[in-house]
Design a protein around this nucleic acid. Structure first.
Length: 330
DNA sequence: GCCACCGGTGGC
DNA sequence: GCCACCGGTGGC
């Protein structure tokens, strides 16, 4: 096994001949977990959530070049994110005279991949169902290259990785050990567009076609359909969503403003910090690109050109808000 | 800060 | 009217 972490680099947004080696840095947040995963420790460090053996989804990015929206959108999932990197945000600068151009179609999951616990190479999983089977017991039954024999594929740790983080997709960390949906049920993961307040939504469709988006929903459903509740515990349902590696994919909630300390003076406190939420500053971020749905994973080789080197250093957040796009000019 | 949950609504 | 999608927030 490799000594150090295989690198994950996500690049997207700009096109840049790679002048820098793939930057591999640990993602601030995920990195610790990654470390843990690496060590095989199962203890999530400070984070309450255990994110040790996550899977990572990669939702496509896309290029932004032409007017035609033939972009990729894929999501890939793997296990053991033992590494991290600072994803480069798809910052697209445009004259934002327009408040915002909503309603782009959100990205979709394009592929599932799981990382071998030995060699850390990623193996594509043929379909969601197999992926869910693997994910369900990923902690107790770590995924290995040879696991692919389950679907008659012969691959070993000596073979090259199936897929790389090359900036053509958006990657996200999935939660481990999520139960498979009960028979007749489906678990649906809907991704949101970049800049949304959440990365994705999970819902379940029942055998009767009902769509449930929370545990209380499920409970209510079972109450009204006792006949379908047969031996199905709530433990079979999980609404946990994956976490994007791209740190800024999800818009952060503006910090709560502390209440003014001073009780009062006679002044009518003219102050009013407009809520000034982020549209402005984040603006560049939110024009990601017109994403569209790239097909299945097979084409993972025909990667569109938009690679950008992440000069972005996780360490210096400063750059974040500033124009990252300087570097982004086409 | 994260996440579970649910309300709102624009587009169909 | 429905529903896919998004925002917000309370609780941790």
């Amino acid at each position: 096994m490799q000594s150090r972490s295989p690198k994950i680099t996500i690049k997207m947004g700009g096109k840049t001949p790679d002048m820098t080696p793939p930057t591999v840095k640990s993602i601030p947040e995920t990195s610790e977990n990654d470390q843990n995963a690496l060590e095989g420790s199962s203890v999530p460090s400070n984070n309450d959530r255990k994110e040790t053996d996550e899977n990572v989804l990669d939702v496509s990015s896309s290029d932004y070049s032409s007017d035609d929206e033939d972009k990729n959108k894929q999501m890939v999932v793997y296990d053991y994110s033992q590494n991290g990197s600072e994803p480069v945000k798809p910052v697209k600068k445009t004259k934002s005279d327009k408040p915002r151009v909503v309603s782009k179609t959100p990205p979709s999951v394009g592929a599932f991949t799981v990382q071998c616990a030995n060699c850390f190479k990623w193996r594509l999983i043929p379909d969601q169902e197999k992926y869910e089977v693997i994910r369900e017991h990923i902690t107790d039954q770590p995924f290995l290259c040879e696991t692919t024999r389950q679907w008659n594929r012969v691959v070993s740790c000596d073979d090259p990785t199936d897929i790389e983080q090359d900036g053509t997709r958006i990657w996200a960390i999935d939660k481990p050990d999520i139960a498979r949906p009960p028979p007749g049920w489906k678990r649906i993961l809907r991704l949101r567009n970049e800049g949304s307040s959440k990365f994705a939504d999970v819902y379940y469709t029942s055998p009767t076609g009902a769509k449930l988006r929370s545990l209380p929903d499920v409970t209510r459903y079972f109450e009204s359909h006792p006949e379908h509740a047969q031996g199905i515990g709530l433990g079979r349902f999980s609404f946990q969503i994956p976490k994007p590696l791209q740190k800024d994919y999800v818009k952060k909630r503006p910090a709560q403003m502390a209440a003014p300390k001073t009780p009062e003076t006679l002044e009518p406190s003219p102050v009013e910090p407009l809520a000034w939420a982020g549209p402005v500053e984040k603006l560049d971020l939110q024009l990601a690109e017109p994403l569209s749905w790239a097909g299945p994973v097979e084409d993972n080789n025909g990667m569109p050109a938009y690679l950008k080197t992440p000069e972005f250093d996780p360490a210096n957040q400063a750059a974040k808000k500033a124009k990252t796009d300087d570097s982004n000019h086409l």
